[in-house]
Amino acid sequence: MQNGKIDKIWQILGSVPDPEIPVISVVELGVIRDVQLIKNEYVISVTPTYSGCPAVKTFQDDIKEQLKINNINNFKIEIVYKPAWTTDWMTQETKEKLRDYGISPPEKNASCPQCKSKEIELISEFGATACKSMYKCNDCLEPFEHFKCI
């Protein structure tokens, strides 16, 4: 019964999109580390992507809202820092979703998400969000965002 409820919570969390990159969920992003039942309370362990990422607060609010809509009220969100979040936690499937969305996923040999060319050039280490840097494709000339490997 309780395990069923935990599965249900994971399922709800899987429907909460990343506020900045709505094609992937917070579960796919890898920030949900654990869901446990401790003394009649579901403890959801969340780890921040970047220390200062403003989306962290937003997705916590979104998680709370979705759980409440689904009549789950006995929960708390706990911030954990260890182990530190890494893009290695993203599955290949999640990476492909990012690519289809136009963001080059966190991989060592980044390529243009439009034309797949490897002839790319770094424009800036920092992009519109903390987790991305800016590149330009030298073949199709399109600028694109790259999800940094950390």
């Binding site: 921040p48 970047y50 200062g52 403003p54 800036s124 903390a130």
Partner: peptide, 13 residues
């Protein structure tokens, strides 16, 4: 954007 990003990281820390 870079300097604002760095500022934000430091604020998070």
């Amino acid at each position: 954007i870079a300097l604002s990003n760095i500022s934000l990281d430091l604020l998070g820390q």
